[in-house]
Design a protein around this nucleic acid. Structure first.
Length: 572
RNA sequence: GUCGCAAUAGCUCAGCUGGAUAGAGCAACGGUCUUCUAAACCGUAGGUCGAGGGUCCGAAUCCCUCUUGCGACACCA
């Protein structure tokens, strides 16, 4: 936050553009120059670079020559040095001034560093997680949950107000089957003891039995009809299954450290669908086709959206339209986000098109945030086929692995269990978020349980070591305003710290938590390298400045992890 | 069949709005703990960026065609 405007990051790229502008006032505008400035991949080529290829035609000279000429003309006083490297002009920043500036900002702002108000407090409902009642939470749900949760944190960091909505699958014909199965083969105590396992057992048994006893399907249909008509017994059972399932889900959410603002599942919208259908009719959007009611979307180059089945029953999209209308009225959203698998991309195009046709205000800012499929041996997960990976088991395996690591590496650690949980769960969340959303993942437990290299624990470990140094240096106060570091080993770390605010904006623009995860690895790596090559606690004049750097790194690593929904233990 | 997503080192992936010799991590091999936690650091080896065209001073990146894999294509969600 720019508390009083004095902490606005100095734009060092602008500094470069300003230096170049007078040398070619007739050829390129300051703005064009700014856009052409790049960041070299390697520090040996400077901190910023200006390529001269494009000027070759206008100047009718070789790019190398242009670079040489320009450097002779420009004011180098604000830089450590300016060098010609072939067709490039490389700018080296004044390290002392730059690091003092950055460290002062991070020290003053702490975890608020990188906070912006771009969102102006706008509401952003996020449709996420969405498990089905009476079914287990699998690795498939992990993605929606963890991506949605991270995007919510990133939204806040950009000044929006996210509303995390767990759109539970709590309605549908399967509840008729479940009620029948429960009444025939179930019992109360088992459901209370382990709701998901037992409810799934009943459901599976129903499907086995109905092959030989097709009359079971009629019973199930009857019970679902009763449920829809508000029958007391049907409703009591449905509501109980829902509560018990939710209790079980919440244990997993607790473990993940994810909370929700609302749990408006499908059932919540039951009484809101008729109004939607009426509105569609009023606006003349509904057309009959093969006995069903559809909205024609040919002008969007999409297939028609089927709103009502030929028997008059509603469909998933009917409910989703009602949901969008409800969110529009309730929240006046700045954006409307759906964190749902990529297999539904086409569907969300249709949904958005229908809402646009209806003239819904928030339709244009509806964003489907798709993610790649999790498979096992290259095949899709499915509860029915038994090809399922239970999220809870994976989390427990990972926590157990973390415990083992602690026993080997740091047996005297206090709070072992808590740290093992933070590290184990962190590894799973980070592992999911570090790659681009759209990549599909073929599940492999061994890959998930890696704690070395570019992983969550790697980032956590880097921060734990930073904290350890700060504990040992308790007698020295880190420098605030005047933290000048001349140590060249520290330079990469300082520069990486300065990148954080831009990464926060980029991650939101792309809806990519992986931008944050990759950044955190980059910062941890830079710090680890610094740590390995410098004696931070050496007693000399720069010690307070080095500690300011360590403190800043710790702050930003923790903040990056927080944006991902990963915890950061002080010791591990 | 139509549309969408993908293809980069043995494996898993980065490569920003096209730019300087294509980078990491695992795995392999070799170093570094009497000094701030070795879950770390340093080094060696490993690639016709799926194939072929095109645009450009310059293409892993943009355009076209093809191949392969995955997914979606109205009465499931």
């Amino acid at each position: 936050m720019d508390k009083d405007g004095s902490f606005v990051i100095m734009d060092y790229k602008q500094l470069v553009a300003d230096a170049l502008a007078p040398t070619m006032a007739d050829t390129l505008s300051a703005d064009d120059i700014y856009k052409k400035i790049e960041r070299p991949k390697d520090s040996s080529m400077g901190d910023y670079a200006f390529p001269t290829f494009t000027l070759a035609k206008t100047f009718r000279k070789a790019p190398q020559q242009i670079a040489t000429d320009l450097v002779e003309q420009l004011d180098q006083s604000k830089f450590e040095k300016v060098q010609v490297a072939g067709p490039y002009i490389n700018f080296f920043l004044d390290k002392a001034a730059f690091s003092a500036d950055i460290l002062a900002q991070v020290s003053a702002q702490g975890a608020d560093f990188g906070q912006n108000e771009n969102g102006k407090g706008g509401n952003v409902p996020i449709d996420m997680s969405s498990p089905n009642i009476a079914k287990p939470i699998s690795m498939g749900h992990l993605r929606s949950t963890v991506i949605g949760n991270s995007i919510a944190e990133i939204l806040k960091k950009n000044g929006y107000n996210p509303i995390k909505d767990n759109h539970l699958g709590d309605w549908g014909t399967q509840f008729g089957k479940l009620i029948v199965a429960y009444l025939k083969w179930g019992n109360e105590d088992d459901v209370k003891k382990d709701p998901i396992t037992n409810l799934v057992k009943y459901y599976v048994k129903f499907h086995q039995e109905d092959k030989e006893h097709p009359e079971l399907d009629d019973e199930a249909r009857e019970w679902f009809k009763k449920l829809e008509d508000g029958d007391a017994e049907a409703h009591r059972l449905w509501s109980w299954f829902r509560d018990e399932s939710l209790k079980a889900f919440n244990q997993i959410y607790d473990k993940l450290g994810v909370t929700f603002d609302t749990y408006n599942g499908e059932a919540f919208y039951n009484d809101k669908m008729q109004a939607v259908i009426d509105e569609l009719k009023e606006k003349g959007l509904l057309k009959e086709s093969q006995g069903a009611q559809v909205v024609d979307l040919s002008k969007y180059d999409l297939n028609p959206a089927l709103i009502l089945k030929s028997d008059g029953a509603s469909l998933y999209i009917t409910r989703d339209i009602a949901t969008a209308v409800y969110r529009d009225k309730t929240y006046h959203p700045a954006m409307n986000l759906y964190v749902v698998g990529s297999e539904q991309m086409y569907y969300f195009q249709q949904l958005k098109a229908v809402l646009t046709e209806m003239g819904l205000a928030s339709a244009k800012d509806l964003h489907h945030i798709p993610f790649g499929l999790i498979t096992v041996d290259g095949k899709k997960l499915s509860t029915r086929s038994g090809r399922i990976i239970l999220l809870d088991e994976v989390l427990d395996d990972s926590i157990a692995m973390a415990k083992k690591q602690i026993a080997e590496k740091n047996p005297d650690l206090p709070n072992k269990d808590e740290v093992a949980k933070q590290v184990g769960v962190g590894a799973i969340i980070f592992g999911d978020l570090k790659n681009e959303r759209m990549n599909s993942i073929d599940f492999n437990l061994a890959d998930q349980l890696k704690f070395e290299g570019e992983t969550g624990p790697y980032v956590q470990y880097a921060r734990a070591r930073a904290e350890s140094i700060l504990r040992k240096a308790a007698d020295v106060t880190p420098a605030g305003e005047n933290a000048t570091i001349n140590d060249p080993e520290a330079w990469e770390t300082v520069k990486t710290l300065a990148d954080f605010p831009a990464i926060v904006e980029e991650a939101l623009a792309d809806f990519e938590p992986s931008d944050i995860a990759k950044y955190s690895i980059r910062l941890a790596k830079a710090f680890n390298k610094y740590y390995a090559h410098s004696k931070i606690l050496a007693d000399d004049a720069e010690k307070p400045a080095r500690l300011a750097l360590v403190k800043s790194v710790s702050t930003i690593l923790k903040e990056s992890l927080r944006l991902l929904g990963v915890q950061a233990p002080d010791e591990m």
